[in-house]
Design a binder for these strands. Structure first.
Lengths: 193, 193
DNA sequence: TGTCAACTTTACACGGTGTCAAGCAAAGGA
DNA sequence: TCCTTTGCTTGACACCGTGTAAAGTTGACA
């Protein structure tokens, strides 16, 4: 019953995850997801009223499975410049895992208010991570004097955006490790005095 | 006849431009454009077979009207670091003018091959501008030694992307002048040794 | 035996893009 | 003057993907 319910719900989210990962986040229809989950299209709507609900549910589910909090914990313990490096690395290496769902949510932003809100909410969490890293820099007296904490946070957050990652990884053909080290260097060069 | 033809074509592109500018690049339908141009929806399809054609046609038209080549000429004459600053400024101040159409093309990329190709083509031109600025830096012996010309070009190009501009201007609420000077500084800090 | 919950099947509304075909009005040439 | 061409209009319709609605099936459990 309720366990069956949960199992189906999970099957749907796993199918969504898998398909979006394979497709790079586009061209995945509700019917494709239903088929991949081995249920009818209507059953998907029984669990997720709209596409945006399914996407945000899946995103939440992924964070849960991948245990995002724990993975970002290491960077929280470090200080100053080191903390910046660790944060960029932790988040930078998380992007590929959420990219499919992220791409789909980003694409829906223009037309769907709920999708926009969900994605903004998640990006706000990333912003907090950026802010913490910048504040640590400031505390260590190493923040580039030209920037306020807020400005530096904005810059770091924009630098670490999924869009930037997509550009460098796919359009420029960079490897994931090249991406991470370049972002670390760029963040250091731009924000550390 | 032929002049009438051209006039209508231009009316359509002007209407497209205006509506996309007003809306920020989303939620503009073919029927909206037709209405704004004062003609029937079918007449639009007589001049532009698909939405992607209309968008790319309008983008080209805008470059023509705004005389993009001339505006970027100044930066081409400068040398070394100065050239980088001028390039960032010239392109950075051009973004707001093309943003509406750009946003619409970006949104279509996921589903429409032609839109993707058109936008990539235009961004390739920007990349050339970035490459020229980086090469000038290299010639002056001021390019950050860690980067090859290609890597530095990729970074600068990603930094100057429309997506980055949108994030800082709208999501972070920066002014256009704040955006330009921050990008200049960031490009200098990251790419100049 | 009966009921409830989860799921299936079928059908349909809606919005946006793109197609098709018939018609109309004005310009221009014979 | 008539006829053709050109540029546009009008109206209908196909297609696709999302989301809704309703009736029917199946299995668990009391």
């Amino acid at each position: 019953m309720s366990s069956e319910n949960l199992e189906t719900r999970e099957k749907i989210m796993r199918a969504t995850w898998k398909l979006l990962e394979e497709s790079g986040g586009s061209g995945v229809r509700m019917s494709d997801i239903a088929k991949a989950a081995g249920i009818s299209r209507q059953a998907v709507y029984l669990h997720f009223p709209t596409r945006a609900d399914l996407l945000t549910g899946t995103a939440r589910y992924m964070d849960e499975v991948r245990n995002i909090d724990e993975r970002l914990a290491a960077s929280r313990k470090a200080k100053g410049t080191n903390r910046l490096d660790l944060w960029v690395e932790a988040w930078g290496n998380y992007i590929p895992e959420i990219h499919g769902v992220g791409r789909a949510l980003i694409a829906m932003r223009d037309t769907d208010e709920a999708a926009a809100a969900a994605w903004n909410d998640r990006m706000q969490a990333v912003r907090h991570g950026c802010e913490a890293a910048v504040t640590a820099l400031k505390s260590a007296g190493r923040l580039m004097p030209d920037y306020s904490v807020e400005q530096a946070t904005d810059l770091l957050w924009a630098l670490l955006s999924v869009e930037m990652w997509e550009k460098l990884r796919f359009e420029c053909g960079w490897s994931q490790t090249a991406y991470v080290s370049a972002m670390q260097k760029m963040a250091r060069d731009s924000l550390v005095s």
